[in-house]
Design a protein around this nucleic acid. Structure first.
Length: 640
DNA sequence: AGCACGCCGACT
DNA sequence: GTCGGCGTGCTC
């Protein structure tokens, strides 16, 4: 007796479910019959529980669609339960998760774990109750505002004030722009002008009746944008979706974002996954910042997710930064993203003259610091003390610099004696007795300092802001920062220096101490796009990222070798082949963007195969070694 | 993961 | 004959 190939059923009585499991062999949709008692609640987007009979268990998942037909062989099992009536997974976020996973040979439910916050039963109950109390119809997919949030009317005049970039974003354009590099003073305190620019664009997007997602790398940046938004007319429309808030607040924000907007969804990297029924634009600040990189599989960072979401949704995309990264420059050169003209104003950068290369602080810098301290604070940027000191020692001990320079990254491993923030502070303090010294680093955070004479010594990324800007800026450990061995050192340094320089008052001197060459010149001329273009030209001749993509393969040797051969047929080549610390193979495959989908598909098939074969070794009771691991777009291709 | 099915060696 | 080892494959 043959079974019917298709099982037809009453309209919409079959549920397609994505199962919440990291197993790659379960990474597809499963069909379930919707039992009569669940037909009311079983709607797309809701959390469900489903039986996996072979696995003998009940699994969690999301109902992503209702259909009439199933291609699944045999009889369908029935949904076990609808966990909650709230459709927390919207169709566009589901499609985004699928695309993000596919791009990196990953599992969609891994992406969903990042995209959808954990359910909070109390929060949900209160939110649903508030929706009913507000007199909204009992529609679960469009409940009314909870009373706590006041939706102020949007001033029509905001449309007139909106910068021209807003109109382009609302047409679905992708734009890379450099932020104005100076401080801006708000009633609540100083922020970067970039934050005000982002806030203005976001306000323009909601004035156009659409929702804006604003993703920034860290809490300090989040606070600045929040302050800039609070100072504007759009304050009542802001919803924070950052992961730093409590689970309850995070879930409440998610529920709020599910309703039609317009609103501004402000958060860190996970904000690019926020549901937005009327998404108008995604705004990303500093896409190259390491905090935009996702540490969880499949490791897709804000920029790449935003690019996928832009493409799927047709929303606008704004990539804003003080300095253009090589990755964004590539997008501009291939014509995918439009580059905006550079800002009219630039910091006044002073380079160290040749005859003073050896001195720790050149005489001109001393003079400027002394002058600046008569009427305001001076910023002194130093490298991260522990990190840099340790690196210098490791390089001395383990690898002769001559060998290190042979690495394809080409970064010369300079060994510079460690100088820590404490000593710098001490020395400067002695040179200017009576002037207070403030040390700002990860352990001693200072978001802002008063605009009074003071020497502010800060590790990169921890620089405080000050009203009206610093009277002078010293970038001290430039050579040490450049000595880091990384494919991205030059642009990282340019970014760190640019961000510090942007804290200076207009016309205040910014001394880049002891650094010569292209990077120094790029800062001095404030032409990061040109520098990025030059870097990109080098990468093109080497066929290195971001001109190509990389995938790292590790695991048992035969399985890795088999995949290497398959990936060669898909258009990839092996850039690095070596053994890792445990003696296992470590292969970095390289491929063009065009080959990406094929490479990812082949890799995913291999991961599924390997997962099915993974077995405990006979006899021994210990767990089996993982047989294949694939990681796409590894940031540092060289082993550490 | 977790569980059923299936295809070869020693057994009441 | 059939009990049960664990290698292989599937989970709607």
């Amino acid at each position: 007796m043959t079974r019917p190939a298709m099982i037809a059923a009453a309209a919409g009585s079959i549920a397609r479910v994505v199962v919440d499991s990291p197993l790659p062999q379960l990474d597809h949709l499963f069909d379930y019959a919707v039992p009569p008692h669940l037909t009311g609640e079983a709607r797309p987007g809701v959390r469900v529980r489903v039986p996996l009979r072979m696995a003998g268990r009940i699994a969690d998942g999301y109902l992503v669609a209702l259909t009439d037909e199933s291609a699944a062989p045999g009889r369908l099992s029935a949904l076990d339960a609808v966990v909650s009536p709230v459709p927390v997974l919207t169709d566009d976020v589901w499609r985004l998760a699928r695309a993000v996973a596919d791009r990196a040979a990953g599992v969609a439910s891994d992406v969903l774990r990042i995209a959808v916050p954990k359910r909070q039963v109390r929060v949900e109950r209160a939110w649903l109750a508030a929706g009913e109390a507000a007199g909204a119809p009992a529609e679960v997919d469009a409940p009314a505002d909870p009373p706590a949030e006041v939706d102020a009317p949007i001033r029509p005049s905001a449309r007139v004030d909106a910068p021209p970039v807003v109109a382009r974003l609302l047409q679905g354009q992708r734009i890379a722009a450099e932020a104005t590099p100076r401080p801006a003073d708000l009633p609540s305190g100083p922020v970067g002008a970039w934050a005000v620019e982002l806030a203005r664009v976001a306000a323009g997007v909601i004035a156009g009746g659409r929702t804006a997602i604003v993703a920034v790398p860290d809490q300090r940046d989040l606070d600045q944008v929040a302050a800039a938004l609070a100072a504007g007319s759009a304050a009542a429309h802001v919803v924070r979706v950052d992961a730093a808030q409590s689970s309850a607040a995070r879930y409440r924000a998610h529920l709020t974002a599910l309703r039609p907007g317009p609103r501004i969804l402000l958060g860190n990297r996970s904000a690019v996954y926020a549901p937005a029924p009327d998404l108008g634009a995604i705004l990303v600040w500093e896409e190259a910042d390491p905090f935009h990189r996702e540490p969880l599989a499949p490791y897709a960072g804000t920029r790449d997710v935003a690019l996928l979401r832009q493409e799927q949704s047709g929303a606008g995309l704004l990539l804003l930064a003080h300095a253009r990264s090589t990755t964004v420059e590539r997008l501009v050169q291939v014509g995918w993203v439009a580059g905006s003209p550079s800002p009219a104003t630039a910091p006044r950068v002073v380079l160290t003259p040749d005859d003073e290369r050896a001195s720790r602080i050149p005489s001109a810098a001393w003079r400027d610091v002394a002058r600046a301290l008569t009427n305001g604070p001076v910023l002194v940027q130093v490298a991260r003390p522990g990190d840099a000191a340790l690196r210098a020692l490791q390089q001395q001990e383990h690898a002769p610099p001559s060998e290190r320079q042979d690495h394809p990254a080409g970064a010369a491993a300079l060994v510079v004696p460690p100088v820590d923030a404490g000593r710098t502070a001490h020395d400067l303090g002695r040179a200017f007795p009576g002037v207070p010294v403030v040390v700002a680093d990860g352990d001693h955070p200072h978001p802002t300092v008063p605009h009074e004479p003071a020497i502010v010594v800060a590790t990169r990324g921890a620089e405080p802001r000050t009203a009206a800007g610093y009277r002078a800026v010293l970038l001290l450990d430039g050579r040490r920062m450049l000595a880091r061995e990384s494919l991205w050192v030059a642009e990282d340094c340019l970014r760190w220096w640019s961000n510090a320089a942007a804290l200076a008052a207009p016309d205040a001197p910014v001394h880049l101490v002891g650094v010569q060459g292209d990077v120094a010149l790029a800062l001095a001329t404030w032409r990061s796009p040109d520098f990025a273009a030059a870097q990109l030209a080098d990468r093109r001749s080497l066929r290195f990222p971001p001109v190509t993509r990389l995938a790292l393969l590790t695991g048992s040797r035969p399985i890795v070798e088999e995949l290497v051969a398959e990936l060669r047929s898909a258009g990839a080549d092996a850039l690095i082949r070596e053994d890792d610390a445990d003696g296992g193979p470590r292969v970095v495959m390289r491929f063009d963007y065009g080959a990406g989908p094929a490479v990812a598909a082949v890799a995913k098939a291999a991961v599924v195969r390997a997962a099915a074969v993974r077995r405990p070794p006979p006899g021994s009771g210990r767990r089996p070694a993982r047989t294949l691991r694939v990681r796409f777009d590894v940031h540092e291709p060289l082993p550490s």
